[in-house]
Structure formats: C-alpha cells, structure tokens
Design a protein around this nucleic acid. Structure first.
Lengths: 257, 257
DNA sequence: AATGGATGTTGCACGCAGTGCAACAGACCT
DNA sequence: AGGTCTGTTGCACTGCGTGCAACATCCATT
C-alpha cells in the first residue's frame, strides 16, 4: 500500500466532517505542514477539495461528479429502474433498490409513487444493515464464512423492540431468509414502517441486488403489505431475467436522461 | 504536486467512464502493472474503488458517502433550504440553488412543487454554464480578469437559437446581469423552458450562491414568470440576510435530517 | 495433457520523489 | 514595533515508490 496516497486519501473523510485549515489537516494526519500542503494541492488540482474564501479546505465538486457518474454506470440499476417505476406506480408505495459492497449495504435507487429520484437521499449514511429487509437478502447470499465474519463485526443498535438484537439472532434470520428467498422488516427500524423485499439474481444465481417495498402501517397493515410479496418477487425475477440476459430485451423504453 | 497521489487520483475519472481491469488502468496511466496495482489497492482500502466479481475495478461506495457528507456541510444550502421550499410551495414551480466553484457551476439543491430532493439529479453533469440564469449571476460577480478568463475558456454550444453564441456576447450579458442584479434564461437551454434568478450574497456583498425559478412556457408565459421576479429577489435577499448573520435567526424550523 | 498466451501477484535493488526542517512572508492583534 | 498566528518556499536526506523479472493462475488451443 502506498503511504503517500494513503495519507492523501485520509484527508477526504477528515474534510467530510467539515472544513479544516492546513494546520488541522497536518495535525490529524501526523505530518509536517508542508507535506499536508502538497497533498492538499494535489487533491485540489483534481477538484476533490476546494479552498473556500477563508482559506480553509472542504470537499470539492468533482466528488459529486464522480459519484454521479459511478452511479449511472451501475448496470443493474439501469435495467431495474423501469421495473421499479412500474411497481411503484401500481402499488403506490416507496420502492428501493440496494446492493452489497465490502461490508456495507447501499441504496442505489428509489421510486416514490409520484416521483423518481435518481440518487437516494440517504446514500452514504449507514443503512440499517442489521434490520433492513434488503440487507438481509444481500448478506444471506454471502458464503457461510464471510457471512459469519460480517455478522460478528456488526453493531446491533436497538432501533425498536423488534430490532435484531445480536449476531446469533441475525445469522438465524439470514438462514431463514436464504431458504425462503425473500425477507421482511416489520418495524425493526422504525416502529411504524414495514418492508417486504426480494432478491435480484445474476446468471449464476448469486444475489446481485435486492429490492423492497416499504409502507407505514397507518396506510397498510403488515398483512396487506405481505400480500404484495408475489408481485414484488415477480418484479425482482423479471429484473433478474433481464440482467442475466435471458430475455432478448424488448427495448424497455430507455428514458432519455 | 505529488506524483504518486496525482497518478492515483487520475484513476478515478478513468473508472468513472466504466469498469476497467488492471492492464487497462496501467496502460492509461502509463505506468507498470505493479505500480497500478498498488495504487488501486490503496484506493480500495479507502473504499474509493471496488473490485467486482469479474476482477475489474469500478468506483466504490465510499465515494457516495463522501459526496453526501460534503453536501450536508454546505451551510448556504442548509440555510437556504426552508426558503426554497416556501418559494416552491407558493409559486408551484421548480426552484434551484447553485454555487460556483473553480470554473464550474453546480446545482446544490432543488425543490419541486410537490417534492424536495436532497441531491439534485444533475449534479456532476456539466451545467449549461453559458446560458443558465444562475450561472450568469455567479460568473458576473467574479473579478473582471477571472470573468474574462473563464468566459474565453468556455465552449458555447448552441442548444437553441437563443443560446449565448460566444465569449463576447456572454461577457456583455454578464455586464448587464451584474448591473441589474438578476438574470433570466429565456429558452436559451431548452426552447420551452424559462428561468428567472437572483443572487444570494454574503456579508461582504460577494455572490455566494444563486437561486432560480424555472417553468415551461406551456404553463406560464415568460412575462408571467418575470412577474415572479420581485418574489424571487425577496427570497434571495432573505437568504442573504440570514447567511450573513444579520438576522438573529428566528429558529427557521430546522428539519430533522 | 501439453502448450501458449492471457491475466493478476510477489520480492527486490535502484534512484527519484516525498519528506521534514528551517527560514521566510503575510495577516492580525496588543 | 513587537508578538504570534497563519500559509508558503527551497533544500538536503533517505525512505518510499518504482519498474523489472519471475511466478502463479486461469482459459483457450492444439
């Protein structure tokens, strides 16, 4: 691993906490000011940090550009999007699409009944990985060893009384989810919110993404939401089919972005 | 400037174009494979790149996290948000907030009449800097020399017949905008879309952001939209006042994020 | 099976590039 | 003026990043 690059990249999360001046950056990196200066200059040339008028540094615009571009190149998302929109339109609830990456679960698309959002507002914030229905599906598909390792490394915050309390319970839940091929979150994250989720699979059968429908129980009861499960699964299967190239793709009107 | 970091960061825009394998990265950087490998490893440890199952690299999740965090620390945006919502609610059209940074103009917030979006969907994509009303305001406030330099470095794509054709015309437009303290875009980007915009100023009078109201002319005519100008300017001034600390801040119900 | 040509990975010696230092330049305050 | 902050520059040293060559896998040919 490269020391210089490592130091430079460590500056980014540091600045994510808020603007900082040269001295602060140097201190927190444990390097000389002149070193920090050169690193910041390099980051600046690439647009990753910006120097505001009070001379302090903060994260730069190119970061948004990169995040945006990266997102648009996620092909699962591109394929899934029209399906999500259709599902959202027909059931009227919020639909999410999520992927797993290096121990984290990440929402990559969201459709609300009235409005499709390209970038989910919570991207980057820690997803409630121990309770979210999509997270269960994604983790349940990991190889045994990895699944255990991840489960045991997690914290288990008690969002509500129904939150997953610990690694053992989580692993049991994952086993169930793995067998049945779908997952729920009944008030595990927020007391009044329920979700049902289904997996999207690649050609080799591995889970590449997971999608869910969420609704507050003041709108529909948990039972009513569960009644949507077949529809959710059918949608997920349709996406799986198209993603793994089984369907000759009936030109699903690609939206002009 | 640091060579190693420079190379490492050059990988990011490269991967933004799409996934690439080790050889491709090494080639495009002009370095040996082993060098590229170490750089990629370092980027990987920081979560900025992700190695997908086919061993190719693509941009990683941490990037979204950083972009998201950065966005939430933009204090103009935080202060402006409730004002934008109120304006959007009262006039019913789309409201944008934008800032200037290092030669680029960047939307940092958007409110649609029915739905507030945290991260604008076009973030990262090149904003139509030569025609957008907010861009005119932001560029018009730059020091003479810098304004000229930027204007002459730009391309002037003819989106429509009313697009700004060249640097000279743009600079003339900027002078006008600077004098009058507001700006419009009447079909300069898309034939049927009009915008009116007003500047948000800091305590020193410098323009720190710009906001606009946009509407298609099938909904309201350009004249009707222009009638909203006083309201837009009042809103912008209110934000300016609060941003520069003049108002003792009447606790403008901070939304619980 | 055996061969060839892809790829990704490791260890190592060389030398340049990144480092910390010390001195300088401003800004701001007392 | 003096003092104390800040950011910046030039330079000598050596530690770190570099490219090389050898190795390890994999897959497609024969």
């Amino acid at each position: 691993m490269s020391q210089t690059v490592d130091r430079a990249l460590s500056i980014l999360p540091l600045l994510a906490e808020g603007p900082a001046d040269l001295g602060q950056v140097a201190d927190r990196l444990g390097v000389h000011k002149s070193t920090a200066l050169r690193l910041l200059r390099t980051l600046h040339e690439h647009g990753l940090v910006y120097r505001q008028s009070d001379q302090r540094y903060r994260l730069g615009a190119r970061l948004f550009a990169l995040a945006q571009e990266a997102m648009e190149h996620l092909d699962v998302r591109e394929i899934a999007h029209p399906h999500l929109v259709r599902l959202g339109g027909s059931c009227g609830h919020t639909v999410h699409l999520a992927v797993y990456e290096d121990g984290e679960v990440l929402y990559i698309d969201k459709v609300d009944s009235r409005y499709p959002v390209r970038m989910y507002s919570r991207i980057g914030k820690p997803v409630a990985i121990t309770v979210a229905a999509v997270a269960k599906l994604l983790l349940a598909d990991l190889p045994e060893a990895q699944r255990r390792a991840v489960a045991e490394a997690l914290d288990y915050p008690l969002y509500t009384a129904r939150s997953t309390p610990n690694a053992a319970a989580f692993l049991r839940e994952l086993a169930t989810v793995r067998d049945q091929g779908w997952a729920t979150d009944l008030g595990g994250h927020e007391e009044s919110i329920n979700c049902v989720a289904a997996p999207v699979r690649g050609a080799d059968g591995r889970v590449v993404a997971a999608m869910s429908v969420s609704a507050p129980n003041v709108v529909v009861t948990a039972d009513e939401l569960l009644a949507l499960l077949p529809l959710v699964r059918r949608t997920a299967d349709a996406i799986s089919g198209e993603y793994s190239g089984r369907t000759p793709v009936t030109t699903p009107d690609r939206d002009t972005v």
